[in-house]
Design a protein around this nucleic acid. Structure first.
Lengths: 231, 231
DNA sequence: GTTTTAAATGACTTATGGTCAGTTATAGAC
DNA sequence: GTCTATAACTGACCATAAGTCATTTAAAAC
């Protein structure tokens, strides 16, 4: 279960077979880990199952013993990352006195530490639509839904001025804004050099700053805590 | 240039060739029109160039005389739709006394009238990264960037309390929120029937309402016009 | 009517997701 | 320790669809 296990047991070409359920789980996990590596080195477009299998020290067919489709692998990676974000978020929200700025800072730090997160998040809806079985899609949404409810409820406790149900609504809006703002502001690789052009200046936005501002606006307005101008 | 021209000149199997620049433009446009039709009937995943060519009454190779890749066709469709949205928006913003609720209502109405818009918008960043030439990508971003600047500036005129440059920032945040919120709230086709389940209730969000609330929150906070509670 | 051009074509190449008959590591029986 | 049954694993193979290009042919130029 530790990150250090990468390549210790199922390294390179496989000799050991995963027979026990826990070994199967570990094998599945090793595929997810290989996928993360791959996504950190190349964009999603270049993510091929052949390459993934090679990285994981398996044959292509073996990947399909653990996942139904290419997209289900990507969804598994995304789900794992998303849980990581929610864990981080819940830890911050557990402290008695948190304000929206602290939360925003935490999210911002997470995004910086996990650059593969936003591309996956942005593609999530597309994947679900395109090539993912109904069971896998349902399982994913159920788990994520439950966590959203939990965090939304916590928000309503922290900010009592929120109306019933408004916590999760704002949470969704915030999450959506994060994804959407990234899509607009992050230049695709092929335009990296063109971003200096004067007519491209508009898109030279500091995502963290912009997101921070917008999130504070959104939540301060909703919680009616207008304690003066921003710091 | 009229919508009625569909199928009048270049109907079915082509006999007439596009030699003049204006005819080439019209042919290109007819491909875009066929693409829109296709996207309204099936999801993006099922969008094949072969099928597109057939719909447009052309051979596959011909499509590649007018577009570099499949994704460049999709980008062209998206750009066209986006211009439509911006036109609508600018028309509303032209009237002297507009408030953010009116603008929100306009956007909401547009989204309802053009259901193919949000899926394309959500996929835009992914397309740009994946399979679009640098020139096409640059051209797209330049035009869209210019329009964003224009509308952002108009916003700053309408809401003088906005700081310099804040108009376009909020505009981007709003646009992003719209895309992101859709991605979360819109259930993929394979889960349509599962949305009744109690653990899926969380995602039974009314996008229009949610978006409306969040947009009003965001802009009212930014413009410091807290004239009481929402209507 | 003949020549020249380039728009249009569609068979072909290539890349990749997904399958499945066959191979072989491993558990369990004896 | 040996044999057998099971199923994890493999990779050649299939199917599909994006993209190419030699050839065809509409139509402009003369």
């Amino acid at each position: 279960m530790n990150a250090l296990r990468t390549g210790t047991r199922f390294a390179d070409r496989v000799r050991t077979r995963a027979v026990l359920p826990e070994d199967k789980a570990e094998r599945r996990d090793s595929i997810v880990r290989a996928a993360v590596e791959l996504l950190q080195n190349a964009p999603q477009g270049a993510f091929s199952v052949e390459e993934l299998a090679h990285r994981a020290g398996l044959a292509k067919g073996t990947v399909y013993l653990y996942f139904g489709t290419r997209e289900e692998v990507l969804l598994a990676v995304h789900a794992e990352r998303q849980h990581l974000l929610f864990d981080t978020l819940e830890k911050v929200l557990a402290s008695p006195r948190v304000d929206i700025r602290t939360v925003t800072r935490t999210v911002t730090r997470f995004l910086r530490a996990h650059p593969e997160f936003l591309p996956l998040a942005a593609n999530c809806r597309g994947m679900l639509e395109t090539n993912i079985g109904a069971e896998a899609a349902l399982a994913y949404k159920q788990v994520i839904g439950a966590r959203l409810v939990g965090i939304g409820a916590r928000m309503e406790v922290l900010f009592p001025s929120l109306a019933k149900g408004q916590g999760i609504g704002l949470l969704m809006a915030s999450y959506g804004m994060m994804i959407g703002l990234w899509q607009i502001s992050d230049p695709p690789a092929c335009l990296a050099s063109a971003m200096e052009r004067p007519d491209m200046r508009v898109f030279n936005v500091d995502l963290e700053k912009q997101l921070g501002t917008a999130l504070v606006c959104l939540w301060e307005s909703a919680t009616m805590r207008h304690d003066g101008s921003g710091s």
